Computed example of a mutant assay.
Amino acid sequence: MDLPSSLAWLVDEAAASPGPERFLAELGRRLLSDGLPLAGGALTLSVPHPIIARRTWLWRAETGAVIEALGFAAAPESEAGRDWLAGLGPVWEERIGPSEDGLLLGWAGIADGAGTFAADDAARLGDVARFAAAPLAALAAREARAALLEAYLGRRSAARVQAGALARGTGETIRAALLCADLRDFTALSEVTEPHAMIAALDAWFDRVAGAVHAFGGEVLKFIGDGVLAIFPVAVASAEPGADGASQGDNIARADRNACEAALRAVAASRAGMAHLDQIRQAQGLAPLPFGAALHFGEILWGNIGAADRLDFTAIGPAVNLVSRLEGLCKPLGRSVLISGAVAANTQTALTPLGEHALRGIAEPCAVFALPED
C-alpha cells in the first residue's frame, strides 16, 4: 500500500517522537509536502497536574515554529488552539480517541474567502487524525507520566527517573548549593488552628519558598512536615572549558558562584514573599508565620535511597546534615537566614559575619554569616 508521506510517517516513526512539539512540527511539515494548504496546526493534551490542566502546542506553517500555551486548572476552560487557528484561516479540528483523554488535533487552512476546507482536504485530514490516534496515545501517556513525576519529584529528579535511574543505591555525586527552611513554632500553631486553616497556611508558605527556589533555577527535593529541602546544582555545561579563554578551573569556580548566588537570591525572594504574606495574615487577624532558613554549599549524593519496594530520589551526605543543623541555629541566634562559610566564599554579596559556631553532630565549627538586613 502506497501511503502519502505523512501517513507513512504516522505508521512507522511518529510514536518515537521525543515530544508533542516535535510531533506537531514534523506532521505539519509532511502535510505541507503532501500538498495540503495549511497555515498552522494545534495539538492539545490534558495532563494530570495540580496546576496545569491542558497543554497546547501551536505550529505556524510559514516559519515552522512551535510555541506552547498552558491552560490552568483554576482558570475557565478555553479553546486556545481553536482560537489561535481561527486567526489564520478556516479551521478543521477533531478529537482523537475517547473524549476524557483530552486529545485535540486541529489545522488552519490558507484563508481564501471560502471560510471552509475543501471537501477533499478535509477528508485527507480525517485520515491523518485516524492514523495519528495510536502514536498520539503513546505520546499522551508519556506526557502524563512526566507531569506526575515532575509534580511529585521535581523536574531534574523526574528526568533522571524517566531515564531509567531506578535501582536502589544508584546516584551521582554533584556539587550544589543547598537550602533548608522550616516554620517556627509550627507544633504550637497547629494545636490552636483548625486543620483546614493549617493546611492553607502550609500551602501559602510552601508557595513562597518553592516559588522562589524554582524562579532561580533550583529544585525542591522534599517537603518534610513544615520543612523544605532544596538544591541549586552546579551547571555542568558552564564548568567546561569555554571559548572565552577561561581555564576549566575558572569556569568551575564561576559555576559554583552562580549556584550560590542563585540560592541567595531565592532565599531573599522567600523572605520578601513571607513578609507580604504576614501582612495579609495580620489584616485577617491571623498570626504571622516566622521561619528559619539556612544555605550551604558542598557535595551531595543525589539518587535512589530507600527500601527495596519504596524508594526516594533525594540527596544525602555531610553537606545535607550541615545545612539542616545550621538552620536549627536560626532561632538561638535570632536570625531568619543563616549562611555557611562555604557559600560566603562563593559570593560577592555583602554578608554579616557571626563568627564560628559548633553544630550538633558536625566535627568542625562552622563559619556563620547572615544577611545584613536580617
Rank of each mutant, 00 (worst) to 15 (best):
M198K: 08
A181K: 01
T187N: 06
A204C: 07
A188S: 14
R184I: 05
A188L: 10
R208M: 05
R184N: 10
A181Q: 01
V192R: 15
D207H: 04
C180L: 07
M198S: 12
D185H: 11
W205P: 00
A181R: 00
G211S: 08
A200V: 06
I199S: 08
F186M: 07
D185W: 03
A181W: 01
E191C: 02
A197N: 01
V192L: 09
A210E: 07
D203L: 04
P195I: 02
I199L: 15
A197I: 00
H196A: 14
A201P: 02
L189G: 03
A197T: 06
F186P: 02
I199V: 14
F216R: 13
A200Y: 02
A200S: 14
D207R: 08
V213N: 02
S190C: 10
F206G: 04
L189P: 07
A181I: 00
V192N: 06
A215L: 12
D203S: 08
D207A: 12
E191S: 12
F206V: 10
V213W: 12
P195A: 06
R208Q: 15
F186E: 07
R184A: 13
A215S: 09
G211N: 04
F216W: 15
F216V: 08
E194V: 00
D182L: 07
T193F: 10
L202C: 12
L202D: 02
A201I: 04
V192Q: 12
D207Y: 03
H214Y: 07
A204I: 06
F216A: 03
P195M: 06
G211D: 09
C180I: 01
V213C: 08
W205E: 01
H196Y: 02
L189Y: 14
H196M: 13
D207V: 00
R184F: 10
H196V: 10
A212L: 10
G211A: 08
A212N: 10
A215M: 03
R184Y: 06
A181D: 04
L183H: 03
G211K: 06
P195G: 06
T193V: 05
D185C: 00
S190I: 11
F186V: 03
F206E: 08
T187M: 12
A200I: 04
I199K: 00
A200K: 11
L202H: 04
